[in-house]
């Protein structure tokens, strides 16, 4: 199992940013998700976030909503998420689960943390769990030996940034913009400032996500962040392809471009 600490130490030693790819479990199919994530790892992703499909993804834009809807329609359950994590972790990438809070809450925090650790997962990203509500999850995660990643946003005050980073282990997820997930024409210029403000409060790696969709954008972000997070752009390639194999190849081509970007 590759830990986040190993990934970021290695990237730092190579004087580059890490590349983090997101795909929901169960999309484009249960097995197809594992194959697609493996292709992203092969193409240069250091870390994979496996999304847990949820019925009410209120921080996600149309691309991820579409993928998640398909995953739920083909009957994806938490057991499938764990199986996906197991398959992806076997490729050697550090593998996390990104999920809204309610599925963990309902499944049981301790049980979820334990099952994720047993599947080879190294942590979670929980975009709607605030520091005030995070204590039970941090305790369960610590007991299972997995990391907890939370988000800071351009609107975050210094006080909030401090509260969030104090709850994070592994890395801090900086949202580049005020908005939902989805590739954008340009990366928000406020993003660099947010990464700098976050660094003032923590020694943890700071990764930037939301709106990154090209190799050039990855290179731009890699200049100031420890990791570049890409989701919708990969999913768009999978959605637009005529079949799973073509989608996988198209997403991998983009990942190769991004992997070059983070090394520029």
């Amino acid at each position: 199992m590759t830990t986040l600490q190993t990934v970021f130490a290695k990237a730092k030693a190579d004087n580059r940013a890490a590349l983090v790819g997101y795909l929901p479990a169960g999309f484009p199919s249960k097995d197809g998700a594992i194959a697609a994530a493996a292709a992203l790892v092969e193409a240069g992703c250091d870390v994979i976030e496996i999304g847990l499909p949820y019925s009410d993804p209120l921080l996600d834009g149309p691309t991820i909503q579409d993928a998640v809807h398909r995953a739920l329609s083909n009957g994806t359950r938490i057991a499938d998420v764990m199986r996906t994590v197991e398959g992806v972790a076997a490729t050697g990438a550090a593998t996390l689960v990104m999920t809204y809070w309610n599925p963990i809450d309902r499944y049981g925090a301790e049980r979820f943390a334990r099952d994720l650790a047993n599947a080879g997962g190294v942590g979670t990203i929980t975009p709607d769990l605030t520091p005030e509500e995070s204590e039970p999850w941090r305790a369960a995660s610590a007991a299972a030996g997995i990391d907890t990643v939370f988000l800071v946003a351009p609107s975050s005050t210094e006080q909030r940034i401090k509260a969030v980073v104090d709850c994070c282990t592994g890395f801090v997820y900086a949202a580049s913009l005020m908005g939902v997930t989805g590739a954008r024409e340009t990366v928000n210029t406020a993003a660099e400032g947010l990464v700098a403000r976050t660094r003032a409060h923590t020694d943890l790696p700071v990764c930037l996500g939301l709106g990154v969709g090209t190799g050039a954008q990855a290179a731009e972000v890699a200049a100031y962040a420890d990791g570049v997070i890409v989701g919708s752009a990969f999913i768009r390639r999978l959605l637009d392809a005529p079949d799973e194999a073509a989608g996988r190849e198209s997403a991998a081509a983009l990942a190769r471009d991004m992997a070059k970007g983070v090394r520029r």
């Binding site: 605030t130 509500e133 939370f150 609107s155 909030r160 969030v164």
Partner: peptide, 20 residues
């Protein structure tokens, strides 16, 4: 102060909305 009625309520939202 956290908007809790006993066990219920609170804030489970993206951090981006907390300042608002």
């Amino acid at each position: 102060m956290h908007g809790k009625f006993g066990l219920f309520g609170g804030r489970f939202v993206p951090e981006a909305l907390i300042p608002a």
